[in-house]
Design a protein around this nucleic acid. Sequence first.
DNA 1: GTTCCGCATGAATCGATAG
DNA 2: ACTATCGATTCATGCGGAA
Lengths: 281, 281
Amino acid sequence: MPSETQESEWRNRIVQGDCLSALKGMPPNSVDLIVTSPPYADSRKSTYGGIHPDKYVEWFLPIAAELRRVLKPEGSFVLNIKEKAVNGERHTYVIELILELKKQGWLWTEEYLWHKKNCAPGKWPNRFRDSWERCLHFNKQKAFAMYQEAVMVPMGDWAKKRLQNLSETDKIRDTSKAGSGFGKNVSNWLERDMAYPTNVLHLATECANKNHSAAYPEDLPAWFIKLFTQPGDLVLDPFLGSGTTCVAAKKLGRDYLGIEIKEEYFQLAQAQVSQHFSSQK
Amino acid sequence: MPSETQESEWRNRIVQGDCLSALKGMPPNSVDLIVTSPPYADSRKSTYGGIHPDKYVEWFLPIAAELRRVLKPEGSFVLNIKEKAVNGERHTYVIELILELKKQGWLWTEEYLWHKKNCAPGKWPNRFRDSWERCLHFNKQKAFAMYQEAVMVPMGDWAKKRLQNLSETDKIRDTSKAGSGFGKNVSNWLERDMAYPTNVLHLATECANKNHSAAYPEDLPAWFIKLFTQPGDLVLDPFLGSGTTCVAAKKLGRDYLGIEIKEEYFQLAQAQVSQHFSSQK
DNA sequence: GTTCCGCATGAATCGATAG
DNA sequence: ACTATCGATTCATGCGGAA
């Protein structure tokens, strides 16, 4: 960790260390977006020092307070998380966390979903395979940065047909509408082969043939990075893992800052990001 | 409402009245499955007497206590619900309700999702269209009835490719085999091509062109009815609305009980169910 | 009898305006 | 300052009429 708290020291770096300590060294109001997938409760205890579900909220809250401090007022915080099933029930630490984060001052703006196209197989007597995770969206204030056009998607089939066969009367009608001042955005209609997405991301999980267990597809942080930042903005992941968030940010021309406590993952993350640089040049 | 509390009085009927009062007249441990979509907070205030978001939990809890009383020990309770956006934030009444239901003794077994294929349009500066709702699954005890085979689905790409590559003669042969009742082999193949679903239901909302506004596609209760009951079991919907749950139950050979307070919806629900009867005969 | 196209219609939400 | 109402925005779906 650098001892200076100048902003330039906190850009395009991967820091090894405890994220709470590292965050405390950072200047306030300097991050545009936080995207992270924290260690899951009790899972992979051997590899990551799992947190017991009953202790999860109290473990996370001090970190969240620091995240709130370093985030810009118009910034966003996206938390990818899913509660485990414990003793046949869904544990409540995630929803308790939402309530506590609100007490901390966070606004719970939205709950996006990651609907996994392919999820781990398995069979249990009391439940099916879990194919979704929460992407909780928090803010410091009601007015925050959002660039919706950056994530538009092609429209449904019907639109293609419509646009192909756009009749003369249709065109005339649209024009006259605009002329009379009612249809304020003709361009919207004419250029309309793209639509805004919904709050569900339907992405596949990353394939397993990489030499790390990144259960977080690059498309996930990439989507939120496009949606909530512009090129040159700073993206923070306090639980970097194998580096996915930083790679996504760099590929999109954003600055990144990753924090990772485990030596092994820290090395891996550095390698992933460097690899991208070299392949770029 | 009947004054008797004999079980036969509470099967294959639609009751008009306040659901809390009606439930209190019911015998305990008599229902196999409760599937319902209660009036959403503050919505349809004009037509349904909307409940204020801040009062939602306290309004729902006494009803939930009665539901728990009438549910069989091995029964399930599926609650389709989604929180509103209030003042730019997602309201917390749904997650507070989960915590309170647990205090009441319910087990929060799972959270299924309804991922809507088509969701309401709209554009806002701070969020996208909401295309999902929660289907919270609660139980009285850890061991409950679940018939997973009843909701198996055709397998994914692997099966599709196989079917694509089948020659026409193969298809005909397979079809005729199946149709003629031969072929344990065929059924084996079919079973191999079937997989257990996940905890996400990807269904379209019912379209508006019907003469009632059932914003609850019949496939949704039907799926849970198949999953958690057997023919002859009793399915309860304490907020019946236009009757969708009862129609789904009856079509699947289950007994039903619907409770609806609004005269208009009560009439509509009765009509819907009768219509199904007559078209059956 | 098909296929195609036009159209109305939402379990929505926000911001502005009015009381 | 707080609540109530209204207009604007937006797109997948299925019906009905047309080709």
